[in-house]
């Protein structure tokens, strides 16, 4: 374990919530890849995964036009009208009003990253103002980043207070708390950060693995640590928190494996888009490609599917 922060406060927290058995987690998730999901179950999984996608574009070069095409893709992912729309589109705050024009009044939500995404390195007042502005523009969901600097320095109260302040700023919008697991360095830290967030967010809010802007994104391992944290929190308090792995999930096969982890850790109650999401962009087309393969029996070429936005 890293010694960059006073271990006493982390250890105090871990003594309440219990540490993570790293070897056990890694062994457990290695098994998920061996499950055989075929035919009807596969079809169900692929379609469910489509409805869980937060179709994302988070780039400096985003334009209202690009967001418009992203929204069209989210509403009608493929020619086949029986394929359901995605859960949400995920954009920068300045693009919220543009996205809202296209998906307002539909089942597709507008999610906006806020709080000085992806670093979170801005004064709290600025971060809160960004959240309020995004909500005022019509964002249904806010994806915030936690203050990793404060977390690693052991300032857990500060981390929690900031999350609580963002919860208040969100109003009716759903909140997703990005832990940025690649910067937390250990499974123990991921579990600790998960609990810090879950203790102050509301039922139906989410915890989310990463921004997608760092080298290491969602893996089965850190997804599992967070799912187990959600399970333990739910069993202790009855509060159901959602989960959103983001970044690095590009293939339908990966998505199905993540769904297996959800099913086997949290059960069917979490297998819908009010409690589980994928933060992704290229994943959607691979899901469509596999669905088309299941429909026609022929393997498809990736270029047969309209481009959405490529970011992570």
């Amino acid at each position: 374990m890293s010694v960059r922060y006073p271990t006493s406060s982390l250890q105090a927290l871990l003594s309440q919530i219990g540490p993570v058995d790293q070897v056990g987690i890694d062994e457990r998730v290695a098994k998920y890849g061996t499950r055989s999901i075929k035919k009807a179950a596969k079809l169900w999984g692929l379609r469910t995964a489509v409805t869980m996608v937060d179709l994302t574009t988070l780039e400096g070069k985003d334009t209202p036009g690009k967001v418009a095409s992203l929204c069209q893709k989210a509403l009608r992912p493929a020619d086949d009208a029986s394929i359901p729309p995605t859960a949400a589109v995920c954009v920068y705050p300045s693009m919220v009003r543009h996205a809202k024009k296209h998906v307002g009044g539909t089942s597709v939500k507008v999610a906006s990253v806020a709080t000085a995404f992806p670093s979170g390195q801005a004064p709290l007042s600025t971060r809160l103002a960004e959240v309020r502005a995004a909500v005022a523009d019509g964002a249904d969901e806010i994806d915030m980043v936690i203050n990793r600097g404060a977390f690693l320095a052991g300032e857990f109260a500060e981390v929690q207070d900031e999350i609580a302040a963002v919860v208040e700023a969100c109003g009716r919008a759903t909140l997703k708390v990005i832990l940025e697991v690649s910067e937390l360095e250990s499974y123990d830290n991921i579990r600790a950060a998960s609990f810090l967030a879950m203790q102050v967010i509301r039922p139906g809010d989410f915890i989310k693995t990463s921004t997608g802007k760092t080298s290491l994104n969602a893996t089965l391992g850190n997804n599992q640590v967070m799912l187990e944290a959600i399970r333990d929190h739910y069993l202790a308090t009855g509060v159901a928190i959602g989960m959103k792995p983001a970044g690095g999930i590009r293939t339908a096969k990966q998505a199905l494996t993540f769904l297996i982890a959800v099913k086997e850790t949290l059960g069917d109650a979490w297998l819908n888009n009010t409690r589980y999401r994928f933060g992704a962009s290229s994943l959607l087309n691979d899901l469509l490609r596999q669905l088309e393969k299941e429909r026609t029996g022929a393997y498809q070429a990736p270029y047969s599917f309209s481009e959405s936005a490529e970011s992570y």
């Binding site: 026609t296 022929a298 393997y299 498809q300």
Partner: peptide, 8 residues
């Protein structure tokens, strides 16, 4: 058969 139908 798969060679025949693979669209890629």
């Amino acid at each position: 058969p798969t060679f025949a139908t693979h669209a890629h």
